[in-house]
């Protein structure tokens, strides 16, 4: 029920995706719709329908097929999580996202329970290009990979490959150099983030045939096979620096990420001896986009704005491809 028009015979006709936007604030709905219809650039067409209450949204879901539903959390009759729960029942496979003016921390538990992996934040100013990217990634998650997607006319682009655990500190030092050359004040925080993300990637990259991890964190890895090397790309555009850290293990799941995030945000992790990495990465980086292709790749995209991005109210962006 969630499929769109049948495959076009004429390949020049672009595919059309149908989006349902739910928010009781008509200005927000109008603005997002206007942006998507007039400014969002993509290879496909978009049809956007709206609802201002949960009941209206659910009625629409029962009547018409949608590829993607984006809903506010606070609606007059029910909350957004409820709508997404219903949406998953009525149209299994429909892509789902929340949009909110409130902060992620308050909703992380619901996000974990309801398996909502994308939460967009209403900030002032609103980040329209980021909104474009998240709509794109929701509709086509396999295209979410790669740092190029998140930099606008990149003026720098470099790659590092890690073949052994010795490469971790070398990679970290190179990235540190990169940040220092841009006089990034939060350099110590980013150092922590990079070490966590790179170490995670390296130790998740090597798998045993049964899918479990071959090495324990901290163990010396003399050589990763070519199917196990970790790729790091880094670069910048006019407004931000970006780093992509990609492992070929693909063992990370969205549920696992939300588990660790929730555990740390709620404070349950106080006495834990490990498991803070993902939380630290999320807290200390301006923007994190996590792309997961099961058993194939796990990619952490880390973006740092050179000036002016608010550090509070962070979104959640996890893209999972089958």
């Amino acid at each position: 029920m969630n499929s769109m028009l049948a495959e076009p015979m004429d390949s020049k006709i672009a595919k059309t995706y149908r989006l349902l936007m739910v928010d009781d604030d008509s200005t927000i709905r109008d603005n997002l719709k206007e942006y998507l219809l007039n400014y969002h650039q993509a290879d496909y067409q978009l049809e956007v329908e709206e609802a201002s209450t949960a009941d209206a949204a659910i009625e629409l879901l029962k009547e018409h097929p949608y590829d993607l539903i984006i809903t506010d959390i606070n609606l007059p009759d029910q909350d957004g999580f409820y709508i997404l729960q219903e949406a998953a029942h009525i149209q299994p496979g429909i892509k789902r996202a929340l949009i909110t003016a409130y902060d992620l921390d308050s909703y992380i538990e619901m996000a974990k329970t309801e398996k909502v992996y994308n939460i967009i934040v209403k900030t002032a100013p609103f980040n329209f290009p980021e909104f474009s990217a998240v709509v794109d990634n929701l509709l086509l998650p396999e295209q979410a990979f790669g740092l190029e997607k998140y930099l606008d006319n990149p003026s720098l682009f470099k790659q590092i490959e890690i073949h052994s655990s010795h490469g971790i500190m070398a990679a970290q030092a190179e990235l540190q150099q990169f940040f220092e050359s841009h006089q990034v004040p939060e350099i110590d925080a980013l150092a922590v983030v990079m070490v966590e993300a790179i170490t995670n990637a390296v130790y998740h990259s090597a798998k045993l045939p049964d899918g479990s991890l071959r090495y324990e964190k901290g163990e010396v890895i003399e050589a990763l096979t070519s199917e196990e090397t970790v790729s790091i790309t880094y670069g910048r555009d006019d407004e931000k620096l970006g780093v992509s850290i990609c492992d070929k293990g693909g063992t990370m799941t969205a549920d696992e990420i939300l588990f660790w995030l929730e555990r740390n945000i709620s404070g349950k992790s106080l006495m834990d001896t490990h498991g803070r990495g993902i939380y630290l990465i999320h807290r200390l980086t301006d923007r994190v986009i996590i792309n997961l292709a099961k058993n194939k790749r796990t990619e952490f995209i880390l973006l740092h704005y050179l000036e002016g991005t608010p550090h509070e109210n962070k979104p959640l962006y996890i893209n999972e491809t089958a």
Binding site: D25, A124, F126
Partner: peptide
């Protein structure tokens, strides 16, 4: 402060789209 966020986002969005 909580309630303010929504209208502030709206105002900003309106202006940004006007700019576009």
């Amino acid at each position: 402060a909580h309630e303010m966020n929504n209208p502030l986002a709206s105002i900003s969005m309106d202006c940004q789209l006007a700019g576009m």
